[in-house]
């Protein structure tokens, strides 16, 4: 058979019974804005820090929602809180507050 370069990838399916989205839930109580995110990516596109290391608020929210807490947090570790993402967010999400609370939740988990 001809190789078309396609292959079956590992399942990305999320098992809601097994995912641990406790950080997401915890932050959502303090800043309900987190639920407004529709992952448009404006924040990642405008991010100051992403020039140096991949920092993406959009991905972090997605990852948190899927229970990949560690990846999400490591993605926000180099955030400089400069606030550009607040200004570009079409949903008016208070991104800095969410980032601070996610990182604080991590400090508490330690």
């Amino acid at each position: 058979m001809t190789e078309f370069g396609f292959k079956l990838s590992q399942s990305n399916r999320i098992d809601l019974d097994e995912t641990d989205n406790s950080v997401f839930k915890k932050v959502a109580i303090i800043v309900p804005d987190i639920k407004l995110c529709f992952n448009c990516g404006s924040c990642s596109a405008s991010c100051t820090s992403t020039h140096f290391k991949r920092v993406s608020f959009r991905s972090a929210i997605l990852l948190l929602n899927r229970g990949h807490n560690k990846e999400a947090i490591s993605m926000l570790k180099s955030c400089m809180l400069c606030g550009k993402c607040i200004l570009v967010c079409p949903r008016g999400i208070d991104t800095r507050n969410i980032i601070i609370n996610i990182l604080k939740a991590e400090e508490e988990m330690k």
């Binding site: 820090s49 140096f52 290391k53 570790k77 180099s78 990182l103 604080k104 400090e107």
Partner: peptide
């Protein structure tokens, strides 16, 4: 007092 303990990582930033 509230946020001083958060540790950021700026090693790749230069």
């Amino acid at each position: 007092i509230n946020n001083g303990a958060i540790s950021f990582d700026y090693t790749p930033v230069k």
